[in-house]
């Protein structure tokens, strides 16, 4: 069975710590904002130039001048601040953002990530992903464990053009939670209804099972 997208996002939200500045990518990562635990205050950074991103506006209150990096209409919060794109990536590059959550097409056992290009097929561009993965102190990938063809997205080496090298620290998939270690992927949690055998069968890269592996609380 495994987790749905909302559950993946909810699991990642548990990694947020009080006081974190967090950048959430497009797709599942965006959903993380809906599951920030009670009592944990984080400030969301949107790389198009906003710290303190608020929720979507009420209908009729959308402002075309106020969007997030996914081009969605959003709102500000008390204490929000706007800045230009150079400063936005300046703070990212300087390591001021504590956590980046983003999606991926492939992750390699050494922490390499590919998520921006499929040669001769998809040409959309990397946006801010290369800057974020090169600089963030902590990077969590949110993705399905396998691609639509059923092939593992956790690989010995990425086959697609890289977005960043050796940067991913943790992966949350529909099947479980994996740390990226010097010894490859380490499964630290499995999703309810998912077996270790299934995880082994669907992980192409080097996989170890943590001695204290446990079922995820959903």
């Amino acid at each position: 069975m495994g987790l749905n997208k909302e559950q993946i996002a909810a699991r990642i939200a548990k990694e947020l710590k009080n006081g974190y500045y967090v950048n959430l990518g497009i797709g599942i990562p965006t959903l993380v904002a809906n599951y920030i635990p009670e009592g944990v205050n984080v400030i969301l950074q949107s790389e198009n130039g906003l710290l303190g991103m608020g929720p979507f506006p009420f209908e009729g209150e959308e402002d075309p001048d106020l969007i997030n990096a996914g081009k969605q209409t959003i709102t500000t919060l008390p204490g929000s601040v706007f800045f230009d794109s150079a400063m936005s990536f300046g703070m990212i590059r300087a390591g001021k953002v504590d956590l980046t959550v983003l999606g991926a097409m492939e992750v390699a056992e050494n922490g390499d990530i590919a998520n921006w290009k499929i040669p001769n097929k998809m040409v959309k561009g990397m946006g801010g992903a290369m800057d974020l993965v090169a600089a963030a102190k902590n990077i969590i990938v949110a993705m399905q464990h396998t691609n639509p063809k059923g092939e593992s997205k956790l690989l010995p080496r990425c086959t697609l053009p890289l977005t960043g090298v050796g940067c991913v620290k943790k992966i949350v998939t529909d099947l479980g939670v994996f740390d990226v270690t010097a010894d490859g992927f380490a499964c630290i949690e499995y999703a309810p209804g998912v077996t270790i055998d299934e995880i082994k069968a669907k992980t192409a890269g080097k996989l170890t099972i943590a001695p204290d592996v446990k079922e995820m609380t959903v």
Partner: peptide, 12 residues
């Protein structure tokens, strides 16, 4: 015109 690319809203 200030066209909005992704109009996202929440319920009141």
């Amino acid at each position: 015109e200030k066209r909005i690319e992704q109009r996202t809203v929440r319920k009141r």
